[in-house]
Design a binder for these strands. Structure first.
Length: 228
DNA sequence: AACAGAGCCAACCGCGGCGCG
DNA sequence: ACGCGCCGCGGTTGGCTCTGT
């Protein structure tokens, strides 16, 4: 196949790793003009990058208050719990972890936690063939279903086991909803009553840099997936 | 010391949702 | 109502680093 001809008026954009100079240009521009209209940001900042690339770089690397590495046990436990509840909704999970990005959490899950969960699951499968079903079995089964999540599907899947846990979870939080039964249909986006995505919207929260809410959320049982 | 394989993470890609003309 | 462009998300990939042989 012949290579595509470059369109005459099409900007040529850089790809690959960002240089320190590019970082500086982007950060300086956003500091002055703010982070909106990424396509415009890319052009006005003098970067040969697409808007998408600028957005990603800013959100995952340059944005202030970003925490990098060293995910604490508390954060890990929270990721496990939220993933169990939401599946691969990385942006929602990241929204509850101040300073963490969806990309970082996704990477952390794929490289660390998914293995842990799989190991634990296999361990349980072994024990189930030998003995009776362990108490925490349902939790792992639910997670397995979530992990299968179809790509591009914006719906949040629920099954009955998960709903029971979700209700426990939300009612444990001040002001949490108690009408999750309206969400009992599988693959149903909560149209009435409680809206999960709304609950995970922190745009108006003042304490987004604090993990205090986690203390309310975390139950005495620190080993949600059967390990801690 | 050299190589291979595994692990990790930054960045890209494709798709769906949304707003606007 | 429709088409278009932009934005945001989740999945995937490429390349660098680490570890074992």
């Amino acid at each position: 196949m012949a290579p595509k001809k470059e369109e005459p008026n099409k900007r040529i954009v850089n790809k690959g790793a960002w240089t320190a100079e590019e970082d500086q240009k982007l950060a300086q521009y956003i500091e002055v003009h703010g982070a909106k209209k990424w396509k415009v940001v890319a052009i006005k900042a003098g970067l040969d990058r697409c808007g998408k690339s600028c957005r990603l770089r800013w959100l995952n690397y340059l944005r202030p208050n970003i925490k990098r590495g060293n995910i604490s046990d508390q954060e890990e436990d929270l990721i496990l719990r939220l993933h169990k509840l939401l599946g691969n909704k990385w942006s929602l999970i990241a929204g509850r972890l101040p300073g963490r990005t969806d990309n970082e959490i996704k990477n952390y899950w794929n490289s660390h936690l998914s293995k842990k969960v799989n190991q634990k699951q296999k361990q349980m499968e072994r024990s189930i063939t030998q003995n009776s079903q362990p108490e925490s079995w349902n939790s792992v089964k639910v997670n397995e279903e979530n992990s299968k999540g179809e790509s591009g599907d914006s719906k949040i899947s629920f099954n009955t086991d998960k709903l029971v846990e979700a209700e426990t979870f939300f009612t444990s939080i001040n002001g949490g909803p108690s009408n999750l039964e309206v969400m009992s249909d599988y693959n149903m986006k909560p149209e009435t009553g409680f809206n999960l995505e709304e609950w995970f919207d922190f745009s108006n929260e003042e304490e987004s840099s604090s993990l205090d809410w986690v203390k309310e959320f975390l139950e005495p049982d620190q080993s949600f997936y059967g390990f801690s």
